[in-house]
Computed example of a mutant assay.
Amino acid sequence: MASDKNVTALRGGPVLMPEPNAGCIAYLRDLLAKAESGEVVGFVCATLHGDGLSGHTIAGMIGPNTLLGAVEMAKADLMDRMRERD
């Protein structure tokens, strides 16, 4: 990993350096174990990267509609938590 001495922001702003998040790592390890056992067979994930950008991925089985319902529930939960923070 590069140190902030090797990275320069284009407009002179702060340089974000990613740091591991223990809660995220623990959850992903648990999820991987469930996938390896066959308990989890499909996955939709939104990610927040160390540089402040976000992404998403879809892997494995993507049906039935209950997966879409879970995504909507996650969206509502995330919006509630963001409102509480503000």
Rank of each mutant, 00 (worst) to 15 (best):
M1E: 07
A2F: 12
S3A: 07
S3F: 05
S3W: 03
D4W: 06
K5Y: 04
K5M: 05
K5I: 02
N6G: 09
V7E: 01
V7R: 06
L10C: 07
L10H: 09
R11G: 08
R11C: 09
G12D: 04
G12S: 02
G12H: 04
G12V: 03
G12R: 03
G12W: 04
G12I: 04
G13N: 12
P14T: 13
P14F: 10
P14R: 14
V15F: 00
L16Y: 03
E19F: 02
E19N: 05
E19D: 04
P20I: 03
P20M: 08
N21C: 09
A22E: 10
A22V: 06
A22T: 05
A22D: 09
C24H: 13
C24N: 15
I25G: 04
I25A: 14
I25D: 15
A26S: 12
A26R: 12
A26N: 11
A26P: 02
Y27C: 14
Y27E: 15
Y27H: 15
R29G: 08
R29K: 15
R29T: 14
R29N: 13
D30Q: 11
D30M: 07
L31F: 04
L31G: 02
L32V: 07
L32Y: 04
A33R: 03
K34A: 05
K34L: 04
A35T: 07
E36G: 04
E36H: 04
G38Y: 02
E39A: 09
V40A: 03
V40F: 01
V40C: 01
G42C: 00
G42E: 00
G42K: 00
F43P: 00
F43K: 05
F43V: 13
F43I: 11
V44R: 07
V44K: 06
C45A: 07
C45R: 05
C45P: 00
A46C: 08
L48F: 02
L48D: 00
H49D: 08
G50I: 01
G50R: 01
G50E: 01
D51F: 02
L53D: 13
I58M: 15
I58R: 13
A59N: 09
G60I: 04
M61C: 11
M61E: 15
M61V: 15
I62T: 15
I62F: 13
I62C: 13
I62R: 13
I62D: 14
G63M: 05
P64N: 04
P64W: 01
P64Q: 00
N65S: 12
T66P: 00
L67V: 08
L67M: 14
L67S: 01
L68M: 10
L68E: 07
L68C: 06
A70N: 07
A70S: 09
V71L: 05
V71A: 07
M73F: 11
M73Q: 14
A74Q: 06
A74G: 06
K75C: 09
A76H: 10
D77V: 06
D77E: 13
L78V: 10
L78F: 11
R81M: 11
R81T: 07
M82S: 08
R83F: 08
R83C: 08
E84F: 08
D86E: 12
D86Q: 10
D86S: 12
D86F: 10
